[in-house]
Design a protein around this nucleic acid. Structure first.
Lengths: 127, 127
DNA sequence: CTGCAACTTCAACATTAGTTGAGGTCAACG
DNA sequence: CGTTGACCTCAACTAATGTTGAAGTTGCAG
């Protein structure tokens, strides 16, 4: 039973596949969103999941996560992640975002029902 | 029937009431998140809604809106906004965010069901 | 092999979202 | 009416998220 070596991808391939610039791919590697191995000549080689990570990263940024938070989210994504690994990460991402949306809604609701429309937890007496 | 002049607030009052630094209050005024009138001596005076706008702005940033987008969201908030004005703005904010979350979920779902776990709309032939 | 497109690093630049500090003015308490 | 804390503007700085360009290296097609 051979260990089938999946093919690798260069910076520009990952860039094309994920829809970002090559410079962004390098940036994401520097910040732990994707990881790469190096060739003998020091060039980056990514696995299949790299483009996927970057696509997810762009989606996550759009709903308020920082690059740091995204890298943290991916820390327990194994090399060659399987569907269930992606499902777990996607689930955690959605949970986090839904929590932020719940917080948003709760605060908005509190403000709308506040006496002066917007005195959430303030009420400093002397004024 | 007198036009009851609601009291005004200084930069540091708005800062305290909204939980940000005075420098941020000035920044938000420069970027159209809040508006101010000026005293004879050129000092900013805000209405009650200023602290509220900033609180909403911080919530909105947390779910991915830029300062520009937030200022745009507030453009049709009248002076001395009433509950229904806030409800309209809050509704638009929530709608926008929920749209982003729907997009996130849809893309994640598409990626999870994709053949190679992550080839959403790419499939370039020659490779 | 050779040549050239794509790669490397590094530093500088751009933009967004603020903060800090200098130098000067205002307002309001006593 | 004077003092003093809060205000004003402006410029410079920070940090995050990238992009651009210079100078040099690699890898692959022919």
């Amino acid at each position: 039973m051979t260990v089938l070596e999946h093919r690798t991808y260069s910076v520009s391939e990952v860039a094309t596949d994920s829809g970002v610039a090559p410079s962004a791919v390098r940036f994401y590697e520097n910040h732990g969103v994707v990881t790469a191995v190096r060739t003998a000549g020091n060039q980056r080689r990514f696995d299949e999941s790299a483009a996927c990570r970057i696509q997810v990263a762009k989606l996550a940024q759009r709903v308020g996560l920082s690059v740091r938070e995204i890298a943290d989210l991916f820390t327990d994504l194994p090399v060659d992640p399987q569907r269930e690994d992606w499902e777990r990460v996607a689930g955690r991402l959605v949970t986090e975002v839904e929590q932020r949306v719940r917080h948003l809604k709760a605060q908005l609701a509190a403000m709308e029902s506040g006496a002066k429309l917007c005195e959430i937890g303030r009420h400093d007496p002397a004024r």
